[in-house]
Amino acid sequence: MQSQVSFSVVISTYNRAHLVSRAIKSVLSQGYSNLEIIVVDDASSDDTAEIIRENFPKIRYIRQESNQGPGPARDRGIREASNQWVVILDDDDELLPKALLKVEESMCLQGLLTTSRIFPVIQFAHSNGSIPDQFKILTIEDYFRGDVLGDFVPVINRMHYISCGFTYPRVRIGGEHMLWWKIAKQYGIPTWNIVITKVHEDAPIRLTSPQNQISRAAEYARLQETTLEEFGVELLSKYPKLYYVKLLGAATYYLLAREKTKARKYLKKAWQFRPTTNAGLLWLLSYMPELIVHKLFVLYRRKGGV
């Protein structure tokens, strides 16, 4: 089909040779003209390179010299892209049929190809994502209120994103929200409640699994800490409930990471801000054996806790 928009699809991957092929095939099956596919391999130690070169010789394959995490890999792909609009696709997910056509049609209907107002990023829903409206230009308040549920697929306006100096956070887990909060605060993010990707759960290691969160608890704790450093003042003044959740989050993950002194520092802040049963229970847990703390965390997550 003849298209009005040129897309580059960037897929960052690390040791998921058995999954990334599915993501690539989902892009190739779009039947979309003006399309570039870039796979950024974050220094995999499996046979990712061989599989891609043998089965997908026409796509662009870029290998990072060292493993740096998904953020730098995605930014590398954005910098290397040839087209104006860059779709960021996870290696364990897949584009649904006609996804790129839906993106193009939505952009045209909202006049984003001709408007004088330029946005660094627009986004569409993953199969687990939703907003209350069919379309909305999201502000940071929409995120803080919890109106943005699940995950969304970013479509980067490449030159504007780069010229504004935006980059993915240099954390290895779940730091994307800080980038979207910054962009939403400064520019707003046009967002459609249109699902264009399917989220799979067949990766051997899921970031949201309790076992992974325990094994990487120090990274999760630092993520909560970084969020508080960058947005704590604004959260405290406008959304104190979310501020309190971040305090307890930092304390919980530091407990799981066996850093009880740091955990108690955040528990003291939480207790001084709002003395609650949750803060009190976490304080008691800070004096219990690590095995008990880990088992209670897994039980809590299995019962639906977040």
Rank of each mutant, 00 (worst) to 15 (best):
G69L: 00
I59L: 10
S26M: 05
A203F: 08
Q68P: 00
I137V: 15
R172L: 10
A73G: 12
I37R: 08
A81L: 02
P204C: 06
P210E: 08
V199K: 07
R117L: 13
I118D: 07
A43H: 15
I118F: 07
K102E: 08
A257R: 04
D90G: 02
Y253R: 00
A23V: 08
K295I: 05
V10W: 00
T191S: 04
E259I: 00
A99G: 08
V87R: 05
I292Y: 07
M178K: 06
G232C: 10
G305I: 09
I11F: 00
P210M: 09
S8N: 05
F144D: 07
S21Q: 04
I205R: 11
N212H: 15
K25Q: 15
V298L: 08
G174F: 06
F135V: 11
P204I: 09
I62T: 09
Y168F: 15
N128L: 10
P97I: 13
L228P: 11
L100E: 09
N278C: 06
W180M: 12
A23G: 05
A81P: 02
K241D: 04
Q84E: 14
I214G: 00
E65S: 14
I194T: 14
T191D: 02
V306N: 12
H160F: 15
K25V: 12
A81M: 01
V245H: 14
D90P: 03
G31E: 06
E94T: 07
I173P: 01
Y220G: 01
V148Q: 03
D75M: 01
Y14K: 15
Y161G: 03
Q272L: 15
I173H: 11
L101Y: 05
T197K: 08
A23P: 04
P275D: 14
L113P: 03
L291R: 13
F297W: 07
D91S: 07
I52D: 00
D147L: 14
F7H: 10
G129H: 14
W85V: 04
T252W: 03
T167V: 14
R79C: 07
T191N: 01
A251Y: 00
R117E: 14
A73K: 05
E201H: 15
V103R: 01
P72I: 08
G150W: 05
P120Y: 01
S286H: 10
P289S: 08
Y14D: 05
G174A: 11
Q272C: 14
I118R: 11
G69M: 01
P97F: 09
G165Q: 04
Q123A: 08
Y243A: 03
K260P: 01
I194R: 02
Q123C: 12
V195N: 02
V5Y: 01
K25L: 15
I122V: 15
Y266V: 00
A184G: 13
L235M: 15
Q213S: 05
I162Q: 06
A279I: 06
D75W: 01
L100H: 11
Y14S: 10
S130C: 13
R145D: 12
F166D: 06
S163N: 14
